[in-house]
Design a protein around this nucleic acid. Structure first.
Lengths: 232, 232
DNA sequence: ACCAAAGCAAGAGCAGTGCTCTCGAAGTTG
DNA sequence: CAACTTCGAGAGCACTGCTCTTGCTTTGGT
């Protein structure tokens, strides 16, 4: 692998990266709604039609940015967890560290966060390529809970009987080895985490929450409690 | 009031309403990103420039739709709570009923929900006119918790000392009469509720949660627990 | 080493957009 | 009735995503 296939292929990779970089820059500056292919091309010194050799449409460019954003966020979460783990943190502290890393990443890349967890852009349905990167954060959270479970430090949340089969299916599909009762709570906590971050990022806390960091830390702790990682 | 001020004024009101109606229709059909002033005007048999007599810009039209959406959602939540209250439901059941009503409204008006709780559209900062309607759902939730508190049915969640002053400020600002410890939990629950609905609506649960209704009901119950409305 | 095939940038062009300006017709008010 | 305001229509500007055609450059097989 990594074979040097010639100038052409190398140029294509570089140009593709340059386009994505410039697009990300304009995304950060003006938001997804105003991201224009022509402006990106102009900034790169090429003509707009040339850009279509690399991305067949504006939505394809956005999809590429979405995948990169998922990957970047996923990497941040994984790194935060690895750090906490290396520091000997117990599962609850790891959980909170991951939540904080998601929030920090979102505050640093607001438009990219909006791209992945905000309203989907056009008619649009997420291409299959996105589901892999999209699940990285979820997998980190699953890993933390699994560690708690294997360390006998997991308090099982209640599960209504009506949700039993669904919990079993979820567990088999993407959380093998965990007790089914915790899986719905875990998925809910993931969505709730996104809700907290989105509200802060999208201005819904304006005039409501002022001490955002302290508030978030508290909420992340409550989230941990909800999935069975009680304080001390 | 309701004085008939002449044909002109009446026409203005009717045309404004017609524009919003048509815009809402196109919003539901194609989403906010593709909502075009010209298309709305065309559908109404008027020329695009005439529309600017009623809304000075596209964003102003969107803002009007946002306010209406907040009001519609708020009314749905208030009605759901009133129904539950009239049926003699205890606070916990009222809480869940309100959560369900938000989800139901969102599923019925996905694009309008995305407009208010999704990523903000342009460069954007929410105009002041939106904050009133925006808080109606929150006020309903506050009312439910207040009823529980006054009925001695509220279990106070823990509050870290670091968040004490902020909790006091929040309580004084928009939740007077409630014990400060519950207010941050309440705000967090509100954001988390939006996270649950957004994830379902924006396709984040695709391949993850199948029994969406049962899952949501469970999560809403957990949310109730988190704000101090325990089961039975 | 040559030459056809493929990849590429550029330009023109289409249909559509938000928004501005001007002009004449209509309604409102003294 | 006259002065004034409001409105719809049309033309026009700068911009968008996207397509198509035209030549040039790189590539890969003979």
């Amino acid at each position: 692998m990594n074979t040097v296939r010639g100038a052409r292929e190398r140029a294509r990779i570089e140009v593709t990266a340059a386009i994505k970089d410039e697009a990300r820059r304009r995304l950060a500056a003006e938001g997804a709604a105003k991201l224009s292919l022509r402006a990106v091309a102009r900034e790169l010194g090429m003509v707009s039609s040339a850009l279509y050799r690399y991305f067949p449409s504006r939505d394809d460019l956005l999809t590429a940015l979405i995948i990169d954003a998922y990957d970047s966020l996923g990497a941040a979460a994984e790194e935060a967890d690895a750090h906490a783990l290396a520091a000997g943190a117990p599962p609850r502290a790891r959980w909170i560290a991951v939540c904080e890393s998601v929030r920090t990443w979102a505050l640093r890349h607001p438009h990219e966060y909006a791209l992945v967890y905000g309203s989907p852009v056009p008619g649009y349905s997420a291409p299959a390529d996105t589901i892999g990167p999209a699940s990285r954060v979820g997998n980190v959270l699953i890993g933390v809970v699994r560690a708690a479970y294997e360390g006998r430090g997991l308090a099982l949340p209640p599960l209504p009987p009506a949700l039993g089969p669904e919990a079993d299916r979820m567990t088999a599909d993407f959380a093998e080895g965990l007790p089914p009762a915790v899986v719905p709570a875990l998925v809910a906590a993931w969505a709730q985490l996104a809700g907290l971050v989105s509200f802060e990022l999208f201005g819904q806390f304006k005039g409501v929450v002022e001490e955002r960091s302290a508030f978030f830390a508290h909420a992340a702790g409550q989230l941990a409690h909800g999935v069975g990682l009680p304080a001390v």
